[in-house]
Design a protein around this nucleic acid. Structure first.
Lengths: 218, 218
DNA sequence: CGCGGATGTGCACGATGTAAACACCCTGTG
DNA sequence: CACAGGGTGTTTACATCGTGCACATCCGCG
């Protein structure tokens, strides 16, 4: 992105400009409208003003296109989580409480993202595993800047501040992630979507406190 | 089932016999093979030896067929959970510990069902909400015999035996269900499917203990 | 015996993903 | 400056899917 550099005239530089980006953009729109199953290859081509098979010059498959969209969504979710962390914390809060608060915040942000962008969220879990978020071999900086990495960092912070026992740290991502993903999923595709917003938020808040309590042993 | 009563000759009684059942059976097979997106109306008709549009005499939609399959799967999951409850508990276990154990058992059964029957499990969360499992208005006997009802009952048992504070009871289904659904989902459609079975089971067991601890306050 | 409604068939239409052959035009090289 | 090559987009085609509509068939009831 920001590659519009030397193109003084914004007529398409040669064939289309960059179709790949346009297709992903179209894919993002369609995903927002109707989730991953509404993300059609032909419709993406249509929106980009191009013939259906042109897509294959940039994406091997429909799933490849979906995967590209998925990556963008993943980054957006990560951004929402980071933003939730960035908001200031009440003064005089001790570090452990702060770490705990951080866990609650990224959890809330995760679920709220799913509620605010249902289609986007569901794309992240459409056909096939995650693109480059790390499953188990959690190694080094490769992890950060992505939702899983953010969670990892917060859990580390909890250990560092004494909010979480070091013995409880290994594998702590799993229950935490499972909880927020379960909440999001049951709201979007399960029965909890029928709850009025207020009750839903209370339910989420309670669930997050419960998982935090379970992790830290209170 | 077991309706083969008065049909002495097993030639199809009149047109087909009962197409509806055959279609659901075919649907169950297809779901087991490739999940909800592999559950095609035409293929179901093919397997039942019938023309595609014949399906519409028994199901308004493709989604109606999926919903019928979903109901069967839901019952199977409930059966698996009840079976997990039925196995005997170590002698001398006090009622509260027993109730706790029950919660762990149905949680384990839930996730194991998902792992053992990925396609079936995913059908339960395919297009549209739950058929007749109760979302929020949890009322009376209508609930039992189904996964959500089983969970409700176990939570009630926990309160009755003192394993769970009465104040923590309202809405306790949500975090519990979110946890197991999150685990199942992340295993089937997320990164945790890559874990070797032993590690996966350990991860699930740990997560279940954590949610139980969070609920009961230890 | 015959009729009506339940059940199943045939055909058609538009949508989708994708493969193969062709057409264009930018870019680097002689 | 000309020209070949390859990256990019088009056209055409095929198999699949869900579904509507008109027709055929056959059971059971009067």
């Amino acid at each position: 992105m920001a590659k519009t550099a030397s193109a003084s005239r914004q007529q398409q530089p040669y064939h289309h400009g960059n179709l790949a980006e346009a297709l992903v953009a179209a894919g993002l729109d369609m995903a927002a409208e109707g989730g991953p199953e509404a993300l059609s290859l032909r419709e993406a081509a249509r929106r980009a003003g191009v013939s259906p098979t042109a897509v294959y010059r940039h994406f091997e498959d429909r799933t490849a296109l979906v995967l590209a969209v998925k990556n963008v969504v993943l980054a957006r979710l990560a951004a929402a989580m980071e933003q939730a962390l960035a908001k200031p914390v009440p003064r005089g809060m001790d570090p452990a409480a702060r770490a705990h608060e951080h866990l609650i915040r990224i959890g809330t942000a995760y679920v709220e993202f799913a509620v605010a962008h249902p289609g986007d969220y569901r794309v992240m879990f459409a056909d096939g595993c995650f693109p480059d978020d790390t499953p188990s071999g959690v190694a080094g900086e490769h992890v950060s800047g992505r939702p899983y990495g953010i969670l990892s960092n917060v859990l580390d912070e909890m250990v560092a501040t004494g909010a979480l026992a070091a013995a409880a740290r290994p594998g702590a991502e799993a229950p935490a992630w499972a909880m927020v993903h379960g909440l999001a999923s049951l709201i979007l595709e399960g029965p909890y979507g029928a709850l009025p917003p207020g009750e839903r938020e209370a339910m989420v808040a309670m669930s997050l406190e419960i998982i935090a309590a379970g992790l830290t042993g209170r």
